[in-house]
Simulated scan of single mutants.
Amino acid sequence: MAPRPGATAVLAWGSGEDGQLGMGDSEEKDWAHAVAALEPYAVTAVVAGSRNSLAICKDGRLFTWGWNQRGTLGHPPETKTESSPGPVEALAGVRIVQAAIGGWHCLAVDDKGRAYAWGGNEYGQCGEEPERKEDGTKALRRDIPFPQRCAPKLKVRQVSGFGFLQCASSASSCRRNPFGGFDTRSKQISTPVRVQGLERVSVIAVGAFHNLALTEDGVLWAWGNNEYGQLGTGDTQPRSQPIRIEALSDVKLVDIAAGGWHSTALTEEGEVYAWGRGEHGRLGLGDDKSSHMVPLQVQLLAGEDIVQVSCGGTHSVALTRDGRMFSYGRGDHGRLGYGRKVTTGHPMEVPIDLPQPKNSTSPDGQWRAKLVACGGRHTLAIAEWTEANY
C-alpha cells in the first residue's frame, strides 16, 4: 500500500547571512531545520538561489525571503534582507506553478503559461525591452523591484536560471521550444531568442554560465561557457549553439541539473552522471579536485535509486526514491547538513531530525524528503511525515 500523505515541512540548512534560511535570523545551520513560518502552508516546491529563497504553495501563492537589495524578493525595496518568508503581493491575483532564481533576479510561471520576472536587470535578464532616454539612446532599467510580465508572446511551461542567464521552455501545439539563446560573442540579450535546432524539450537547466536541455526522447544538449568541461563535450571550447552530448547517448535520461560550473544527469534506472568542475568534490566522484570533461557515473551512489539531483554553487544533493538525501561538495557554512564543516567528494546521508508532528498517530513514523534544492551556500528541501504500517 502506498504511504498515506501526512504532515509536510520545509527544511533549510547552510549559510543564513542574508536570511535565506527563513529562520528569522542570519545564523548558519549545520543541520536541517524546519522553516516554522511556512508550517501553516501546503508548500509544494522550493527554490534556493545564491542569496535568497522561494516557496510555491499548493494554492499558487509565492513566498520569498533572503537578500533584497536588487528587488530580488518582489517585496517593497525598503528592506535590504528579509529573514522570514513573505508572500509576493504583486502576484496575489495569479496562481504560480513554477519558478526559478538567477543571480539577482527571479522568474515565475502561472497556470496559464504567463511568465513574470523581477530583480536585477542590468544584462536584460528580466526580458524587458530597453527604455528610450531623452537623448534618443536606449538603456535597460537596472532593477525591477516588483514582478512584471515578460515574454508576453510565449506560453511558457518552465523557466530556469542560475547566474545571469536563463532559459524558458514554451508549449506550442505539440512542440516545446527553448528560448534564451546563448551567444559567446554577445554582451547581452534583453528579450527571448529562439534556440535553433531544439524541439520537444522536456527539461531545461541553467548553470553559472552554461545551459542544458533534455529532449523527450532522452537526448541531452548543452551550450555556453565550458572552461571546466561542464558541457560534457570532452574539451573546454565554448559553444554558442546546442551540441549533443554523445557520451550519454547509450543511456535513457530523465532529468538534468546544472550548478556552479558542473552538471549532472539522471537515468531512468536511478543512476547519476556528473561532469565539469570537480573542486571541493561537488561531482561526488570521491575526490575534491579533479574536473572531468565527459560525464562519469557517480559510482558512490550506485544502488541508491536516485530520483532527483540538485546542483548548487559548489555542492550537490541527491534524493533517493525512499526519501533519503545524500550531499557532497564544499562543506563550510553547513551547506552539506552533516552537523560539521567537512568538504567531501563522498556522498553522505543528510539526517532529518525533526520532532514527530502533533497530529501523528504513529511514533514509529519517519520524515522522508520529497524534493531538494541547492543554492549558492545553502540548501532547501521538502519532507513528508510517513506513518508506520502505511
Results as ranks from 00 to 15, higher is better:
residue 282 R to C: 07
residue 145 P to M: 14
residue 333 H to K: 09
residue 347 P to Q: 05
residue 60 G to K: 10
residue 185 R to S: 09
residue 5 P to E: 09
residue 119 G to P: 07
residue 378 H to I: 03
residue 90 A to N: 10
residue 302 A to S: 12
residue 2 A to T: 13
residue 214 L to Y: 09
residue 212 L to D: 06
residue 349 E to F: 03
residue 39 E to M: 13
residue 353 D to L: 09
residue 298 V to M: 08
residue 365 G to P: 04
residue 131 E to L: 13
residue 291 S to H: 00
residue 380 L to S: 10
residue 31 W to P: 00
residue 264 T to P: 00
residue 138 K to V: 09
residue 36 A to I: 10
residue 107 L to W: 08
residue 93 G to W: 04
residue 239 R to T: 02
residue 141 R to P: 04
residue 144 I to S: 09
residue 120 G to P: 01
residue 313 G to F: 02
residue 30 D to M: 13
residue 305 D to N: 06
residue 256 I to F: 00
residue 83 S to H: 05
residue 81 T to V: 14
residue 8 T to Y: 03
residue 224 G to N: 04
residue 306 I to R: 04
residue 304 E to F: 11
residue 224 G to R: 05
residue 316 S to W: 01
residue 242 P to K: 03
residue 224 G to P: 06
residue 243 I to L: 08
residue 265 A to K: 03
residue 303 G to Q: 06
residue 275 W to L: 03
residue 23 M to S: 08
residue 381 A to S: 13
residue 181 G to K: 12
residue 191 T to L: 12
residue 264 T to V: 09
residue 15 S to K: 07
residue 121 N to S: 12
residue 342 V to F: 04
residue 68 N to H: 14
residue 300 L to V: 05
residue 359 N to R: 08
residue 161 G to I: 05
residue 168 A to E: 02
residue 337 G to F: 05
residue 126 C to W: 01
residue 329 G to I: 02
